[in-house]
């Protein structure tokens, strides 16, 4: 695993998400006010861009068909489903958001 410096915290507005490309990965990072969370930017339903969703507490709502995904666990909360997205550990160092990218992708 390796920590990657991603972007300045001010680039992700409060209670919004932004997608970021890290190599061939598309990652959605969200600003929850007191912390940043990152998940794979692809809804397990139809591949919708989660970074464009409305945040509701710790979940994001996919803009395509309103699936709800927990940003902490990556689990789909609505509808009932076993599907989940990959989550990435996030740390901020100073003003910089850093994400831990695993060497081999695996579901969280």
């Amino acid at each position: 695993m390796s920590w990657i410096r991603i972007t300045n915290t001010e680039n992700i507005p409060l209670r919004e998400g932004r997608s970021v490309r890290v190599g061939d990965r598309d990652i959605a990072i969200f600003n929850l006010g007191n912390r940043f969370l990152a998940v794979e930017n692809r809804c397990p339903h139809n591949g919708g861009p989660l970074a464009e969703g409305i945040i509701s507490g710790k979940t994001v709502v996919c803009p395509l068909h309103a699936w709800k995904v927990c940003l902490e666990s990556g689990a789909v909360k609505k509808p009932q489903s076993d599907a989940c997205v990959m989550t990435y550990p996030v740390e901020t160092v100073g003003d910089i958001i850093c994400i831990d990218i695993p060497a081999n992708a695996c579901a969280a």
């Binding site: 410096r5 991603i6 972007t7 970021v20 490309r21 990218i101 060497a103």
Partner: peptide, 17 residues
């Protein structure tokens, strides 16, 4: 950053902090 595609500051893989 509304319309900007954010790119990571350093490109992986093999980057060590």
């Amino acid at each position: 950053t509304q319309f900007v595609q954010i790119e990571a500051m350093h490109s992986p893989p093999g980057y060590f902090p």
